[in-house]
């Protein structure tokens, strides 16, 4: 019997050897309206400075942003709250489809802010960060002055705060690069395919299917640019054993994304309301981001009312500058945080 026991213990030990760093953080679960949403808090909690990370998608998860040098550098100085939004990542419950509205998501974030202040103190410095869909979510949240008052600053990275405008800008962006690259004889077949597709779209009536296809081409286009800096192996790595349950995260994320689409998130257009943002704001874009073209970020920079605002475009990045130019990206966030914390 001993040999069986030894075999089992060896296997369990092998799989239990996760990244020790992963084990050091704290997980707080927020239970709200039929859903338990984990908030993984990693980093320097003693700094009293917290950054809530709103992940992309919808359909992503918080911890997929916790890999590599940029996360390491952020966590040395501040605490990062990798939160799985309702119906995404490791959040789970029996919430019903009809409840999946933007208002419910905003309510969830209210609750998370309340919980963090309860756990770590009313006087903590709190920053809100949103990437891609997280940019839509965060911008929508900050349309309320009362909600802005809870934060020291807002960081929008490659944020999609106006989806109809984003689609139009993406079409123009594709058309520009397609002309350039077909003319130069580079990746001609792929650029012709993209050009044919974007030229066929009626920009006054972009369908959901066309928007989805634009998004897919946006990711594919990044592979056509040698200028985009790829991370070294030691720069961006997730440990083997980590809390992400890939299968359930992908399946439930897709379902939630579909339901949110049905409930109107593709129609969120906040460009005309951006003047309501008075909070110190840092807007980050990637030069070769075809998913959320940099022009959308620059437009937001010009429209918000914040006295303290910064815009930065990362010259060697696509949709995820935290992967492409991690060191600089993290340092820029930290500079913004240092400047705006109490």
């Amino acid at each position: 019997m001993n040999k069986y026991l030894l075999l089992y213990v060896s296997c369990f030990w092998l799989f239990s050897c996760g990244d020790t760093d992963i084990k050091q953080g704290e997980t707080l679960f927020l239970r709200h309206k039929g859903c338990d949403m984990p908030a993984y808090v990693y980093g320097n909690t003693a700094s009293n400075t917290f950054m809530i990370l709103l992940h992309g998608g919808p359909g992503g998860n918080g911890l997929e942003y916790r890999g590599g040098v940029y996360a390491e550098n952020l966590e040395k100085e501040i605490a990062v709250v990798y939160w799985d939004q309702r119906g995404q990542g490791n959040s789970k419950g029996n919430n019903h489809a009809e409840e999946l509205t933007m208002d419910l998501l905003l309510d969830d974030l209210d609750q998370l802010v309340f919980l963090l202040k309860h756990q770590y103190g009313e006087d903590i410095n709190l920053f809100l960060y949103g990437h891609s869909w997280g940019g839509t979510y965060g911008t929508k949240y900050l349309m309320s002055k009362k909600r802005q008052q809870q934060f020291n600053g807002w960081i929008e990275s490659n944020g999609a705060h106006d989806i109809p405008k984003l689609n139009k800008l993406a079409i123009e962006f594709f058309q520009f690069y397609a002309r350039e690259y077909i003319g130069a004889g580079i990746n001609v077949t792929k650029w012709q395919e993209i050009q044919k597709f974007v030229n066929s779209i009626d920009t006054l009536n972009i369908t959901d299917e066309e928007a989805l296809k634009l998004n897919q081409f946006g990711h594919e286009a990044e592979e056509l640019f040698d200028e985009i800096k790829q991370p070294d192996e030691d720069e961006f790595q997730m440990p083997l054993r980590n809390p992400i349950d890939v299968v359930s995260s992908v399946v439930t994320g897709n379902y939630t994304s579909q339901k949110l689409d049905e409930n109107g998130i593709e129609e969120i257009a906040l460009s005309d309301s951006l003047y309501k943002i008075e909070l110190p704001t840092f807007i980050q874009t990637g030069r070769y981001d075809f998913v959320v073209p940099p022009a959308l970020g620059f437009y937001a920079y010009n429209r918000i009312s914040s006295k303290e605002k910064t815009y930065k475009q990362y010259s060697y990045s696509g949709h995820s500058p935290m992967v492409n130019e991690g060191v600089e990206y993290a340092e820029d966030i930290l500079t913004f945080i240092r400047k705006n914390k109490k």
Binding site: E26, T27, L28, F29, L30, R31, H32, D36, K92, L115
Partner: peptide, 11 residues
């Protein structure tokens, strides 16, 4: 039956 591996709060 899954148990959350962390403190769970409701408000």
């Amino acid at each position: 039956r899954s148990f959350n591996a962390g403190k769970t709060f409701t408000i």
